[in-house]
Design a protein around this nucleic acid. Structure first.
Lengths: 209, 209, 209, 209
DNA sequence: TATGAATGAGCTTTCATTCAT
DNA sequence: GATGAATGAAAGCTCATTCAT
């Protein structure tokens, strides 16, 4: 008793905390959703992957839809923040180079998740909103000042921001997301090379002069 | 056959032919799949939209998956053909301008179907293959000669084809497909304006000099 | 072929008609609901009793609640009609005697169903309404003219109708419904004897003079 | 034991005693059962109403059924006792008047509980027995001497006790219990008026002579 | 002793597919 | 061929009960 009181050796608990289970379920849902889509995933499989009973899922998330939303939230919030933290001294051109590489890496690391998000955005307004508010708005908020600065400095042409941005994002997203669908077209290419070639096209265009 | 054609004088039949029902089902499936996704669609709803009994679907298509494949086939085959028929006299630059506008129109007219295809491509290898073989390969087959010609004539820079193409397609597809998700960013823009701005970026790039 | 066309011997169909299945399910639901209550009954058991697959129930009734309502409807509608058809020539006293016996028989024959209805009326507004509209309102509509006639003829005292009715119905319903709960108190009693004794009390009261 | 009583000076404890929790759970169960029925109530809701954890319920009552039985017991035991304590000097007629009013008040005060009991008596033998032993038998035990005395004194007709009792109880119970179901029929009526009218019918009957 | 997260059997409901007509 | 009722496996979800803390 005494020693117990004094040392309290923080015995390794066999039981997971509620927070850990919560995370287990979220991670499992991320994996399964990404692989099979929302409608193609069953709560039974998510439970199996998470290593919990099926009922446990509904203790943490009232409905399957709630679980979907909970899966989206952290990905959306954490995806972009602090991106330009260390880029304070960069030129706009350098920022765009950095940004494009960084996005391709992000998409690559979260393999399948962005594809999942764009896919489900069509069918579920919750996803659409998360995609829009969490990713697009934030992305634009970060890129626009650099774009404006580039135009102000005379580095960039004074093109309209939104359409230009859309073209730029199209390049990046498409490369990042559908690489998977089109795999085989240029298999030995590295991520950096892909980024550089997109940048070349973005910066200088296709025409010879 | 002949006697059949002659004697049966094509009376205005209230009964549809098997071929007509087949088409009704395909069209209904296209509509429902596009709106709700493959897993989100029920054969009951497709039957209702098609105006046939649920069992009839399975007389024409053994499984729901078969129906999906059958829906993809004609879209994929007809999507691209005859594109360059009337462009024989054009310059590569003119072709690209025409191609980009034509693709945006195509995507627009088949509202939702391309989104559906890219979305389901993740979850169903059948769709992935249809997308790849039917659209990408054909598209590349058509564009590459013009690209090569442009490079040969000195109109285009000698950039590597595949990455350049991917950037180009990214612009086009992203604009066409996710416009819907990002609606509101530039609402009064016409399709032509969007096409012109993408072309400006594609041809001359972002940098000022 | 020919004989088939001519005689068409109305082969005994192995398959039940949709209407028959509908009835099977309603009858099964009546049995199970009556025995176990609404919340205590499972659609699995109802299906088993009806001899159909569980899914079949939901082809005929969208929800379990709908099935409950469908069970109530015919009982409620058929319970009372034509009661006074053959009583045109009776005196009010004779009518009351007939009515009381008739109600006790009805409750007896539909063993458990009235108990079920009064029980579930507490928890489900659908049942409450059915009970009120289908049984009480109709019952009052039938009895009131006879009561009024009895008062007009000087057979009955001019008591207020509703409270008197409630006392009368209480006697009848309680006897009919909770006989079951209180069984054992007077086991060899016949239905007729019970009715006669209630009538005696109803007509002449407890007091000696 | 003694030292325990003396040394621990009943400090105002924030913690409830086991006995208090026991009571809290019983009260909560009474409320929830009465409102939703046994099968319609969840242990989760009872725990919430009681202000305890769900597991705590099962520390006090092994099963939900045990909780039901425990809820019934005190109601059944306390429902009737002391009824005739102050009626020693009354006449049988006065007793019946008092008894009827008293029962209506009791049913009214325990709003819903008697309805609950009669309802669940159909589905649960435990309730049936409690109802029978706790309420009927006791009630009969109390009323019968007064009835017999009334008959002996020549106040009451020599009717058979059980059927008469059943008619009487039917009036009372039905009025008390299903008033709720039939509300609206005579809304401004007071409890006393209702009692008086039932007594009038009970004592003198419906017939004019 | 009280807690409340976890459990898993079982609930109502859905749906692709079958098959007698 | 067309029908549509029937099927039953499987879906999402509930809930009385358990048990490590």
């Amino acid at each position: 008793m005494k020693s117990n009181q004094e040392t309290k050796p923080r015995e390794i608990s066999l039981r997971k905390t509620a927070e850990e289970r919560h995370q287990d379920i979220l991670e499992a849902a991320l994996i399964v959703f990404t692989r099979k889509g929302y409608n193609g995933s069953t709560t039974a499989e998510i439970a199996r992957v998470a290593g919990v009973a099926e009922g446990t899922i509904f203790r943490h998330f009232a409905t399957k839809k709630d679980l979907l939303v909970a899966v989206l939230k952290p990905k959306v919030l954490n995806g972009i923040i602090d991106l330009d933290k260390e880029q304070k001294e960069a030129t706009p051109v350098e920022f765009f180079r950095f940004f494009l590489r960084n996005r391709l890496e992000l998409i690559n690391e979260n393999d399948g998740f962005f594809r999942f998000m764009f896919a489900e955005a069509q069918y579920h307004s919750e996803v659409r909103e998360a995609l829009f508010k969490g990713i697009l708005e934030q992305g634009i908020g970060i890129v626009k000042p650099w774009f404006d600065m580039g135009v102000a400095r005379g580095d960039f042409k004074p093109l309209p921001f939104i359409p230009t941005m859309r073209g730029f994002m199209g390049m990046v997203m498409f490369q990042g997301m559908f690489n998977h669908v089109f795999e085989g077209l240029s298999p030995e290419e590295t991520l950096e090379e892909a980024a550089d070639q997109l940048l070349e096209l973005l910066f200088h265009g296709l025409l010879a002069k």
